[in-house]
Simulated scan of single mutants.
Amino acid sequence: MLAEVRQQIIKSNARYKAAADVHRRERLFKEGDLVMVRLRRERFPPGAYSKLAKRKIGPVPILAKINDNAYRIELPADCNTSSTFNVADISPYKPADDAIVLISSSESSSSEAGED
């Protein structure tokens, strides 16, 4: 009887997995790919997160692939959080047009240029 119950549980779990995999997309990135990174509230210490802060940063390059589910990202210096992200928080960067993409921190240079 226990063997039958165990087989029934295995079949049931396989059906649940097949139903969940229908909606799942596999996202794989390579080192050097430009991506957008979602910053969740949980990544910051208490009091450091503002609801008016940017939700995504990027484009930023991928430094290293830890496994298919985790990547190390090159974050700007002012971002005080871990550089390791889950694939759920990473989306591929698609430029709006065929313009050249600069990876440098354009926000700091534009704010310095406006102060003159």
Results as ranks from 00 to 15, higher is better:
1 M>N: 08
1 M>I: 05
3 A>E: 13
5 V>K: 14
7 Q>I: 04
7 Q>S: 14
7 Q>P: 00
9 I>K: 13
9 I>Y: 10
10 I>T: 05
10 I>N: 01
11 K>D: 15
12 S>W: 06
13 N>K: 15
14 A>K: 07
14 A>N: 08
15 R>T: 12
15 R>S: 12
15 R>M: 13
17 K>W: 04
19 A>I: 11
20 A>P: 02
21 D>S: 12
21 D>N: 15
21 D>H: 07
21 D>V: 02
21 D>Y: 03
22 V>W: 02
23 H>Q: 08
24 R>T: 12
24 R>C: 05
24 R>H: 14
25 R>I: 12
26 E>Y: 06
26 E>D: 13
30 K>S: 13
30 K>R: 13
30 K>T: 03
31 E>A: 14
35 V>Y: 01
36 M>W: 00
36 M>T: 00
36 M>Y: 01
37 V>H: 01
37 V>T: 02
38 R>S: 09
38 R>Q: 14
39 L>C: 06
40 R>N: 11
40 R>W: 11
41 R>M: 08
42 E>Y: 10
42 E>S: 15
44 F>K: 00
45 P>H: 04
45 P>Q: 07
46 P>E: 11
46 P>R: 12
46 P>M: 05
47 G>D: 09
47 G>K: 10
47 G>M: 05
47 G>L: 05
47 G>E: 10
48 A>Q: 14
48 A>R: 14
49 Y>F: 15
51 K>T: 08
52 L>Q: 09
52 L>A: 05
52 L>P: 01
52 L>F: 08
55 R>I: 07
55 R>C: 07
56 K>D: 06
56 K>N: 09
57 I>K: 00
58 G>S: 09
59 P>F: 00
59 P>T: 00
59 P>W: 00
60 V>L: 10
61 P>K: 02
61 P>C: 05
63 L>N: 03
65 K>C: 10
66 I>N: 05
66 I>D: 04
67 N>M: 01
68 D>S: 11
69 N>V: 14
69 N>M: 13
70 A>F: 12
70 A>K: 03
71 Y>K: 02
72 R>W: 01
75 L>G: 06
76 P>L: 06
76 P>E: 09
76 P>T: 04
78 D>M: 10
78 D>G: 11
80 N>H: 13
81 T>R: 11
81 T>A: 08
84 T>Q: 09
84 T>K: 06
85 F>A: 06
85 F>G: 05
86 N>F: 08
86 N>H: 15
88 A>K: 13
88 A>L: 12
88 A>W: 00
90 I>K: 04
90 I>C: 09
90 I>R: 04
91 S>G: 11
92 P>V: 09
93 Y>Q: 08
95 P>S: 04
95 P>L: 04
96 A>K: 07
96 A>F: 06
97 D>P: 03
97 D>N: 15
97 D>W: 03
98 D>I: 07
99 A>Y: 11
99 A>G: 00
101 V>G: 04
101 V>H: 04
103 I>W: 03
105 S>M: 03
106 S>V: 07
106 S>W: 05
106 S>Y: 05
107 E>M: 05
108 S>E: 07
108 S>T: 04
109 S>Q: 14
109 S>N: 10
109 S>I: 15
110 S>W: 09
112 E>D: 09
112 E>K: 12
112 E>L: 14
112 E>R: 13
114 G>L: 10
114 G>F: 08
114 G>H: 01
115 E>C: 06
115 E>F: 07
115 E>K: 13
115 E>V: 10
116 D>H: 12
116 D>Q: 12
